[in-house]
């Protein structure tokens, strides 16, 4: 039984595409056939983060308009045979998407993939609604700041009202909270909302906390999903998140301010 998972947030720049890329790569590395779709038509980014921007020939809109087949448009990942990317169009806009045509493409993908990850554009307009419409589950990405949490709250309301599951009265979309750009130091200083505050405000299940780190930027720029950087905290946090998504019981890491090591305590930082 295939699953459609939307990665959404309301607010822009919180880490949706980074999370989509790492989540999809993580599912694929555990042997699940996974495709990740870039719904940000006109501002495509996912191909960059996945390092396949030079291999884009046909895109999602070409498939929607039946100018290319899915097989032609899907790009296989360089290192993982289980992972495919359906890139967005850079030249079109979101009006190219219609509900029934998107439904047709997703229906086709369901036949050959275990997981279909939909990377949503920011906002609450058509593009974002398209990305969430067919979802079975949702990763809601939030930064520990009040405006991001408010926007996530709004998008959670949309998931509960405007998705196919909501309209048809099926079991509601399963919602998971991903807190990204989390910095224990800044939480301690009161500059960022704490995990408790965020959970109290949003009231959904926390599936992952991704610490703020430089590796994320480096990984994005070099076109490798950060989950593949095994030494980075962010990569490890994404690994944990994927494991939790697949039902494993993994404790949260990187939540506390790191204690200084023996030497730095003696010699000063």
């Amino acid at each position: 039984m295939s699953k459609v998972i939307v990665v959404t947030s309301g607010k822009g720049g919180v880490g949706k595409t980074t999370t989509s890329a790492s989540f999809a790569a993580g599912l694929a590395s555990r042997g699940h056939r996974t495709v990740v779709i870039d719904f940000d038509i006109g501002l495509r980014n996912l191909d960059l983060v996945m390092g396949c921007e030079r291999r884009v020939v046909y895109d999602f809109v070409n498939v929607i308009n039946e100018e290319a087949s899915l097989k032609q448009a899907l790009i296989r990942d360089k290192v993982d045979n289980n992972l495919y990317i359906l890139p967005a169009s850079q030249t079109r806009d979101k009006d190219a998407l219609t509900q029934d045509k998107v439904g047709k493409v997703i229906g086709e993908l369901r036949e050959s993939f275990d997981y279909i990850v939909c990377d949503s554009p920011a906002g609450i307009e058509k593009g974002a609604l398209m990305a969430l419409f067919y979802a079975d589950e949702a990763l809601v990405v939030t930064n520990p700041e009040i405006s991001s949490v408010r926007d996530s709250d709004r998008i959670l309301g949309m998931l509960a009202a405007k998705s196919l599951r909501a309209i048809e009265g099926d079991e509601p979309i399963k919602e998971h909270l991903v807190v990204s750009r989390y910095s224990p130091e800044r939480v301690q200083m009161g500059e960022m909302l704490s995990l408790d505050d965020i959970q109290e405000l949003l009231g959904i299940n926390l599936i992952g906390v991704i610490p703020e780190s430089e590796e994320v930027l480096q990984a994005s720029n070099s076109g490798v999903p950060v989950i593949r950087d095994e030494r980075s905290k962010s990569g490890q946090a994404y690994q944990d998140m994927v494991a939790r998504f697949l039902g494993e019981d993994v404790p949260m890491r990187f939540l506390e301010v790191e204690k200084k090591g023996f030497f730095s305590r003696i010699f000063g930082a």
Partner: peptide, 24 residues
């Protein structure tokens, strides 16, 4: 929970929310 942007109206009676009503 009643989330930002949502509006709930109990016509002709009381409204009971067994969860939170969020900002917005």
């Amino acid at each position: 929970p009643v989330r930002s942007g949502q509006q709930i109206y109990a016509k002709g009676g009381d409204l009971i929310i067994l969860s939170s009503v969020n900002v917005g």
